[in-house]
């Protein structure tokens, strides 16, 4: 067994804090050193004493757990933060991990998992369960997909008019039909069409449609 781990709990619900403390009592190497009611309170106490691991709620008055995690990370690099929250949301998970949380648990996690997370973050610096892994994986895959599929505006800035014409071209409308639909002269539509070819680097309409497809403009 590892030596004594000093744990702090920041949560605005006393009943939940007591619940967690009761749960952790049987584990002899865990020592709950203090409780805080919100982020401000937590940082106040931490000026005096620092725990090894903080169990951090997200939704708290005065200063929430997102802000408090950032502050702890800035001031006390060695203190580990385990988010313990009701929010089961990939976007929150990614955001918190990016902002310095070492683990992310749900409040209805098994006590065994809370204990394991405390020990693992203390020893290895992080504890990622399946929820965290999936959220991070999704984020990474999303990023790579975006690299392969450049969006219109970042790569080729098309105007809204040009986008509209491109979409109508993809719907197999002729220049004449397009001009009637968006109230422009056929000459102007032809001009926009030419501009689209130039901007996307396509050689013909097929290339243009392929471009629209690749960029997820049409289904």
């Amino acid at each position: 067994m590892t030596n004594n781990i000093k744990v702090a709990i920041a949560d605005d619900h006393k009943i939940f804090r007591s619940g967690v403390i009761n749960t952790l009592t049987p584990y002899e190497n865990i020592n709950v050193v203090f409780e805080a009611e919100d982020g401000v309170h937590l940082l106040q106490i931490m000026e005096e004493q620092q725990p090894d691991v903080i169990l951090m709620d997200l939704k708290m008055p005065n200063m929430d757990g997102i802000e408090a995690t950032k502050k702890v990370r800035e001031k006390y690099a060695h203190v580990k933060v385990i988010v313990l929250t009701m929010y089961e949301d990939d976007n929150f998970i990614v955001h918190l991990i990016e902002n310095g949380a070492n683990a992310y648990l749900l409040k209805n996690a098994e006590p065994g998992e809370i204990y394991e997370a405390i020990c693992t973050t203390y020893e290895k610096g992080f504890y990622f369960n399946e929820n965290v892994n999936l959220a991070l994986l999704k984020k990474v895959m999303h990023k790579t997909r975006q690299q392969f599929k450049p969006t219109f505006r970042s790569e080729v800035p098309l105007t809204d008019r040009e986008l509209e014409v491109l979409r109508l071209i993809c719907e197999e409308l002729t220049t004449q039909q397009i001009s009637e639909k968006i109230f422009l002269s056929p000459r102007t539509v032809e001009g926009l069409r030419q501009k689209l070819l130039e901007k996307t680097g396509a050689k013909n309409i097929v290339g243009l449609v392929m471009y629209a497809f690749r960029n997820g403009l049409i289904e």
Binding site: I15, N22, K107, N108
Partner: peptide, 21 residues
């Protein structure tokens, strides 16, 4: 939403912790 999520949610989480004990 906040009352449900924060208050009832916290209480249910405690219920689960107690069940574990």
């Amino acid at each position: 939403a906040e009352d449900l999520h924060d208050e009832v949610g916290a209480q249910l989480s405690v219920l689960k912790l107690n069940l574990n004990q």
